[in-house]
C-alpha cells in the first residue's frame, strides 16, 4: 500500500512536469531539454525559502513559482530566436549551465551536498507527516494545475500557441507577436514545473544537483513522447507507464548482475518500438505529424520509402 502511495505521489509530480513540457513541445512545438533544470530551480527555490527563511509551504510554493518564472523568462530570451534542432542544443546548454550553478553557488545551494532537512508542509500547526496526507495535497495541486492548463489551452492564447506550431509566419501576419507568445508560454511552463519542484522537495525532503541532470530532462521528454504530444491524457498515461516500467521489469527472471543494464536496454527498445510503430504516442492523434522540422527532407525520403 505504502508502495502505491509513494508511486502515486511521484506520478503526480511527473504528470505536472510532463504537462509543463507538453505546453512547450506538444502545443507550441518548442523542444526543450532544460526542463529538469527549471524543475530544479523550483525545487531549490522552495527548499531554500523553507529552510533558510523558514517560510511556510504555500508562501514558498508561490515564491518558487515566481522565481522559476523569472528565470525561465531570462532563459527564453536568447534561445527562442533559434528554432528546431538548434534549440535542442541550446536548451542542452542551459541545462548544463544551471546544473553547474547548483553545484557551485555553494553559499546558496550548498554545492553537491545539497539541501537537507526540508520540512514537510504544515497547515495551522498540523504537519503532513504521513505519505497518505501528502498524497492528498499532491493530488489537489495536480488537479489545480491540470485544470488551469486545460483552461488556458481553450483560450485565445492557446489557439495562438497551436498556430505557432503550425506556422509561425501566419501568426505574425495576423499581427500577433509569435516571440512574445513563445516567451509567455516558456514562463508559464517554468511556473508549472516549479509547482512540481516544490512538491518534490517537500516530499523527498532532500535535494541535490544530482536530481536535476540532463538524464532527468530526457526522461521528462520521454514521458510525453510516449503518451502523445499535445494530449493531456497522454502525458498522464505516459508518466504512469514509464515510472512503473522499471518496477514491472524487476519481475523478469534475470540474474542481478545483468538485470540492471538489461532493464535499461529494454527501456530503450520500448522507446524505439514506439517511435517506429506509433510515433504519435499512445494518445496523440496526428498532432505529432504536424511538427515540421526540415520538412523537405522528410517528404523526399518518404517519397522514396513508398516507392521501395
Amino acid at each position: 500500500m505504502e508502495l502505491l502511495i509513494g508511486f502515486a505521489i511521484l506520478a503526480c509530480i511527473y504528470i505536472i512536469l510532463a504537462s509543463s513540457l507538453n505546453i512547450l513541445i506538444g502545443y507550441t512545438g518548442i523542444f526543450s531539454m532544460a526542463q529538469a533544470a527549471v524543475f530544479g530551480v523550483g525545487a531549490y527555490a522552495a527548499a531554500l525559502l523553507e529552510t533558510k527563511l523558514t517560510w511556510g509551504f504555500i508562501p514558498s510554493l508561490i515564491g518558487a513559482i515566481v522565481i522559476a518564472g523569472v528565470i525561465s523568462a531570462i532563459m527564453a530570451f536568447p534561445s527562442l530566436g533559434v528554432s528546431g534542432d538548434y534549440f535542442i542544443v541550446a536548451s542542452f546548454g542551459l541545462q548544463m549551465l544551471i546544473h553547474t550553478l547548483f553545484m557551485n553557488l555553494d553559499g546558496l545551494t550548498n554545492g553537491p551536498a545539497g539541501v537537507q532537512r526540508i520540512p514537510r508542509p504544515e497547515f495551522f500547526g498540523y504537519q503532513l507527516n504521513s505519505d497518505i496526507e501528502y498524497l492528498i495535497l499532491t493530488i489537489l495541486l495536480t488537479a489545480i494545475v491540470l485544470w488551469f492548463l486545460v483552461g488556458i489551452s481553450k483560450t485565445g492564447f492557446g489557439r495562438v500557441l497551436r498556430a505557432i506550431k503550425e506556422d509561425e509566419t501566419v501568426v505574425q501576419s495576423l499581427g500577433k507577436s509569435a516571440k512574445r507568445s513563445k516567451i509567455t508560454v516558456t514562463v508559464l511552463s517554468g511556473c508549472v514545473a516549479a509547482v512540481a519542484g516544490s512538491i518534490y522537495a517537500n516530499y523527498v525532503t532532500y535535494i541535490s544537483p544530482a536530481s536535476f541532470t540532463i538524464h532527468e530532462s530526457i526522461f521528462i521528454a520521454q514521458l510525453i513522447i510516449l503518451g502523445g504530444l499535445g494530449s493531456w491524457r497522454g502525458a498522464t498515461i505516459g508518466t504512469i507507464i514509464l515510472l512503473g516500467l522499471p518496477e514491472v521489469l524487476k519481475f523478469l527472471p534475470i540474474s542481478e548482475t545483468y538485470a540492471a543494464p538489461l532493464r535499461q536496454v529494454f527501456f530503450g527498445l520500448l522507446i524505439i518500438g514506439f517511435m517506429i510503430l506509433r510515433p504519435q504516442g499512445i494518445f496523440g492523434t496526428n498532432m505529432a505529424k504536424k511538427i515540421k522540422i526540415k520538412d523537405s527532407n522528410i517528404t523526399a525520403e518518404l517519397g522514396e520509402g513508398e516507392k521501395a
Binding site: 530526457i218 513522447i225 527501456f267 517511435m275 510515433p279 505529432a288 515540421k292 522540422i293 520509402g305
Partner: peptide
C-alpha cells in the same frame, strides 16, 4: 521510423533510445 510518418523529432527520440540500448 521515417517510412511511418515519423518526424525528425521522432527520429531523434528513437536515436536516443538506440543509444540507451547500445550503452547498457
Amino acid at each position: 521510423v521515417l517510412s511511418r510518418n515519423g518526424t525528425h523529432l521522432v527520429l531523434f527520440i528513437a536515436s536516443l533510445g538506440l543509444l540507451t540500448v547500445i550503452d547498457n
